[in-house]
């Protein structure tokens, strides 16, 4: 069924592209809705036929994975959910994979957010991943969810030297002083790793500027693809690793599956999304090529397109 579906999809898409090429060369207009239809089919078909590929991790992803993997059990890791639903398809798979990895390695996690929407998405990760998959982990001992605070970099500027001044309680009003996890944490300087997930402002960049550099704490980032290229100047001096877009999530999931038997059957939204991603990339590249062929042809004919 899958093979037939793939073949059918490829025939439809490449047949359509051929039609588009002929139409473009002949100089006839193509309605924008036809272009939209192409993208819809190239994304929808691989989802329905569940086409997936094996991923090979890139050095920036391997570096972050190795950092988390290499920390001794009991290390304190802060994961900040600084994103909204518009970034969630790319960033939430990273959040889930890294939370799993940290808990499996015995690290203690502080969950927080600089985005109001991040707190609700964090609740989703906690209720759908952590609670069902790690029932042995105890709130307050193995992880604490301190939630969201308004103020963007203002929040970071306080927690870099005094965490409990900004977050006196966890998200449910439990004083942090009463939790075992926060017994040894006074400020961000007491953390072993910060994982900043996001793609907007405030986000990973602000974590580097306001916490990572001043407190000398390693920062790893998982970001929406749109901002990933902007963070490369920080690697490796100021950022220990970068997960960029759904490809970064897929690579991390692949590493997790390859190194931990427990996660062989886990949900892999990142890997699952790479099938449609691949076909859509091909279609967009074909659009650029076809558009340019038509352009040069019309120019050689003396057209003024």
């Amino acid at each position: 069924m899958t093979n037939i579906g793939v073949i059918l999809t490829l025939i439809v898409i490449f047949g359509g592209l051929l039609w588009l090429l002929v139409r473009s060369i002949s100089g006839r207009e193509v309605d924008r809705r036809i272009i939209f239809l192409f993208i819809f089919v190239s994304v929808a078909a691989p989802i329905i036929f569940q086409i997936t590929f094996k991923e090979r991790a890139t050095p920036v992803v391997e570096a972050l994975f190795a950092n988390i993997d290499g920390l001794p059990a009991g290390s304190k890791v802060l994961i900040s959910f600084d994103f909204d639903p518009a970034m969630a398809p790319e960033v939430q798979p990273m959040a889930n994979a890294m939370s799993r990895h940290c808990l499996e390695k015995g690290h203690k996690i502080v969950f927080m957010s600089l985005w109001a929407t991040g707190q609700s998405l964090m609740t989703t990760t906690l209720s759908r991943v952590i609670l069902p998959e790690f029932p042995e982990k105890v709130n307050g001992v193995d992880y604490v969810n301190v939630g969201y605070k308004a103020g963007n970099e203002g929040v970071l500027n306080v927690i870099v030297s005094d965490f409990k001044k900004m977050f006196p309680t966890d998200v449910n009003g439990v004083p942090l002083d009463s939790t075992q996890l926060f017994r040894d944490i006074r400020s961000c300087a007491d953390l072993d790793l910060i994982i900043a997930l996001g793609g907007g402002r405030p986000g990973p960049k602000e974590w580097v500027l306001f916490v990572g550099d001043p407190a000398d704490v390693p920062v790893g980032v998982g970001v929406a693809a749109v901002v990933a290229p902007q963070l490369y100047p920080y690697f490796p001096q100021q950022i220990v690793g970068i997960l960029g877009g759904v490809k970064g999530a897929a690579e991390y999931e692949q590493l997790l599956i390859a190194t931990h038997d427990r996660f062989v059957d886990m949900e892999t939204p990142g890997i699952d999304m790479m099938g449609p991603q691949t076909l859509a990339h091909v279609v967009i590249m074909a659009f650029i090529v076809i558009g340019n062929i038509a352009f040069f042809r019309s120019r050689s004919k003396g057209g003024s397109k």
Binding site: V30, R32, I35, F36, F38, I39, F40, V43, D84, P85, A86, A88, P89, T117, A280, V283, I284, F287, I288, I290, G291, N292
Partner: peptide, 20 residues
């Protein structure tokens, strides 16, 4: 919100064909 932003996938495709 996520659907609103996903509209951009269609517009990027259209721009790829017409503008690049």
């Amino acid at each position: 919100q996520s659907t609103m932003y996903s509209l951009l996938a269609f517009f990027v495709a259209s721009a790829s064909y017409r503008a690049f």
